[in-house]
């Protein structure tokens, strides 16, 4: 599957499936993002899986969730061991969990942080791979009114790896949020803004 990586056409890997692993903490919306992205990809005709790893469901506890997106039916039913893309919703997880586990030389990290990609590369102790950062906490605070980094990170992800065409993605997200927050148009608008801003502001090395 060929996708645009940070505005450059690139063969992300030989396999037909792009595998994304989300690391967050309970309450940050890692599960929602994993499933919402899968749903959006399904709407543009992709084959998808979106699922969390269910553990003790507590606010603040580490949460892992997964998204697979492909051009062919996906039959594998297992957690993602060798992700192409790792999204880190909370940078403090870098010390708590092995977020880089199984990531190849070409792996992509998208991190919610105020730090630069170079600093995060050092923190992750990465030799290969590519690191992208975005201040999703601040973006969500300014657009949605509270710290909820999942939606801006989805916007950043689409910029870094265009698994779904950006315009389609925004349109579908708007419809999904409108379904969910019928009586609260400001929430819909805030989330869309958060995604647009993260799409613009995500930085790479």
């Amino acid at each position: 599957m060929t996708i645009v990586i940070f505005e450059r056409e690139e063969q992300i890997k030989m396999s037909d499936v792009i595998e994304i692993r989300w690391h967050g903490r309970g309450g940050q919306g890692a599960k929602t993002a994993a499933i919402l992205l899968a749903e959006a990809a399904s709407r543009v005709g992709k084959y998808i899986q979106g699922f969390p790893e269910y553990g003790p469901e507590r606010m603040g506890a580490p949460v892992t969730a997964y998204t697979r997106i492909g051009d062919k039916p996906i039959r594998i039913h297992a957690n993602i061991l060798e992700p192409d893309i790792v999204v880190i919703l909370d940078p403090t997880l870098i010390r708590a969990t092995d977020v880089a586990s199984g990531v190849s030389e070409n792996g992509i990290f998208i991190i919610n942080t105020i730090e630069s990609p170079a600093v995060m590369r050092k923190k992750l102790n990465l030799k290969g791979g590519r690191v992208f950062t975005v201040d999703a906490n601040n973006i969500s605070l300014e657009t949605i009114g509270r710290v909820i980094p999942n939606t801006p990170l989805m916007g950043a992800l689409i910029k870094v790896a265009e698994v779904i065409p950006y315009d389609d993605f925004l349109k579908i997200m708007k419809e999904e949020f409108e379904k969910k927050f019928k009586s609260r148009p400001e929430v819909v608008e805030g989330n869309i803004k958060a995604m647009e801003r993260a799409y613009q502001e995500v930085k790479g090395e």
């Binding site: 899968a38 749903e39 998808i48 979106g50 699922f51 039916p73 039913h77």
Partner: peptide, 10 residues
């Protein structure tokens, strides 16, 4: 359980 019941698929 969970693998299918809670996993989103086409």
């Amino acid at each position: 359980g969970f693998i299918i019941s809670h996993g989103l698929e086409n």
